[in-house]
Amino acid sequence: TGTRRLSDLRVIDLRAELRKRNVDSSGNKSVLMERLKKAIEDEGGNPDEIEITSE
C-alpha cells in the first residue's frame, strides 16, 4: 500500500483502479488517466496522490 502520482501508474494499474471504481477500463493510457482523474475528483480525492493497494 502506498501513495503514487497518477502519472506514475502503469496501464495495468490504471485499469485496476478504474475497475475498483466500476469505471470503463478500455482505451489507451491517456484515456485511462483522464477517466481515473475524473473519477477521483468526483470522489473528492486528489488525483496527484492515489492510494494504491498492492496485490
Rank of each mutant, 00 (worst) to 15 (best):
E55S: 01
A16C: 07
D13Q: 14
K37G: 11
E51S: 14
R10P: 08
S30E: 14
A16I: 14
S30F: 10
V23M: 15
R4E: 13
S30T: 11
S54R: 09
D13V: 02
D42K: 09
I40D: 01
D24M: 04
R5V: 03
G44D: 05
I12D: 12
S54E: 08
D42F: 07
E17L: 11
E49A: 15
R4Y: 15
I52F: 15
L36P: 02
D13L: 02
S30Q: 13
I52K: 13
L6D: 03
M33K: 09
T3W: 04
E34Q: 11
S7G: 10
D24L: 05
I52A: 12
G45T: 05
T53V: 13
N22W: 02
K37R: 14
G44P: 05
G44W: 02
D24S: 10
S25I: 07
G27D: 01
E41A: 12
T3I: 15
D8N: 07
S30L: 13
S7A: 15
G2C: 14
N28F: 06
A16W: 14
R21S: 01
L14T: 00
D13R: 02
S25F: 09
R19Y: 05
D42Y: 08
V23L: 15
E43Y: 01
S30R: 15
E49F: 12
L32A: 04
E51H: 15
N22V: 04
R15I: 12
G45Q: 11
R10D: 14
I40W: 04
K37E: 08
G44T: 04
G45L: 10
A39G: 03
D8C: 06
A16G: 14
S7K: 12
N46W: 05
K29N: 04
T1S: 04
E49M: 14
N22L: 06
S54V: 13
E17F: 02
I40M: 07
E34R: 15
I12N: 09
T53H: 04
E43G: 08
I52D: 10
L36I: 02
L32W: 00
N28G: 15
L36A: 05
R15K: 05
G2P: 03
L32K: 02
I12H: 11
R15L: 10
P47S: 11
V31A: 14
E17W: 01
L9P: 02
T1E: 09
T1C: 10
D24I: 03
I52H: 12
E17G: 02
G27P: 00
R21K: 02
E17Y: 02
R5E: 09
R19G: 14
P47C: 14
K29A: 12
S25W: 10
S54A: 13
A16S: 13
E34L: 13
I12F: 10
G2V: 14
N28M: 05
K29G: 10
N22D: 12
R4N: 05
N22T: 06
N46Q: 08
S54D: 12
V31D: 06
L32C: 05
R15Y: 03
D48T: 10
N22R: 11
I52M: 07
V31M: 12
R21N: 01
K29W: 09
R15A: 08
D13S: 04
L6W: 02
D24Y: 03
V11M: 15
E55L: 01
G45C: 09
E43L: 03
K38G: 08
N22K: 06
A39M: 05
M33E: 06
V23A: 10
S30N: 13
D8G: 08
G27C: 00
T53K: 13
D13F: 00
T53W: 08
R10I: 02
S7M: 10
A16E: 15
S30D: 11
D48W: 03
R21V: 01
T53F: 07
D48G: 13
N28K: 13
N28I: 08
R21W: 01
S7Q: 10
I50E: 04
I40H: 00
S7W: 05
R4S: 11
G44E: 03
S25P: 11
V31E: 13
L6I: 12
K20A: 15
G2N: 11
T1V: 05
L6T: 03
T3K: 09
R5Y: 05
G45A: 08
S54I: 11
L18V: 01
K37W: 06
S7D: 09
L14V: 02
I40Y: 03
E43Q: 08
L32Q: 03
R21H: 04
R35A: 10
D48C: 11
M33V: 14
S7E: 05
D24Q: 06
L9E: 01
L32F: 00
E51M: 11
L9Y: 07
L14G: 01
G2R: 06
I40E: 03
